[in-house]
Nucleic acid binder design. Sequence first.
DNA 1: GCTGAAAAATGATTTAC
DNA 2: GTAAATCATTTTTCAGC
Lengths: 154, 154
Amino acid sequence: MPAEDVDEIDREILYALQEDARTLSSSDIAERTGTSGSTVRKRIQRLEEAGVVKGYSAEVDYERSGYPIRMLLFCTASIHERGDLIPDILALDGVVSVQELITGEQNLLVTAVGRSDSDITPVAEALLDMGITVADEVLVKSHVTTPFGRFEEE
Amino acid sequence: MPAEDVDEIDREILYALQEDARTLSSSDIAERTGTSGSTVRKRIQRLEEAGVVKGYSAEVDYERSGYPIRMLLFCTASIHERGDLIPDILALDGVVSVQELITGEQNLLVTAVGRSDSDITPVAEALLDMGITVADEVLVKSHVTTPFGRFEEE
DNA sequence: GCTGAAAAATGATTTAC
DNA sequence: GTAAATCATTTTTCAGC
């Protein structure tokens, strides 16, 4: 499914599912798109199979669940190992996301959460053991996300 | 609901909901926790009301949906305006997340997506109009997240 | 606070158009 | 892409532990 095949109705479906992936039924979304529940159901299935929808996840406030520390680890990995290391990095306790960076000083950005700074130290050590240099650690105070659908003026 | 009141069963529920927030029913999760569907349902409600669960969202592969560019914008805002500006930043076309940074050179990290670099320019301009300095722009090649439950050895 | 069971409501699937 | 009928699930409610 090429990206061009994602049309306006698909974008509305994607937006709705980003707002509320658990409660909204296909029929609920159909009301917003002016289509039918059947159509929405088929389109969602197509979007899932195409990997446009990677999954559905609860947004957890880690701070309120006992993990108030959120740290960004800016790292450098050897460029030809970097991709292969990502699964191992994701498996480390506390790591919640990994991004490969193209421009900038470092080429990896690892985000980890913990109960205190001392939970982050093992992550940094494990990265070093993998041959990854941790160049900088930045503490995050707050983190908010928002759904994205389309650009308003096209 | 203080963070201490999130017990092991709650963490299992949170983990399950991070893995699949749309398909898993309370009864499905109950099987994994060794409790009943009724219990899981009540606990989910409690976690939602306490704000531990902020919402449920589809994880969209923006690249496959027509927005292949993902950019990190490292910014500096005046510290006493920063919090108030976040809703305005989130409202900008293409912005998908905003993080307040404590340590490091900059105090804001804005993530934006777009069809090309030229979609990011208006975001940077809008930030400047808000009095926010964009110090650095880093292009992201890939971005993966993973659920987090608890630290293995406590 | 947790459980289990019945009733009620809702969503998914199938089929045909 | 839509619509209707059927089928399967889930949520709700509540009595009981």
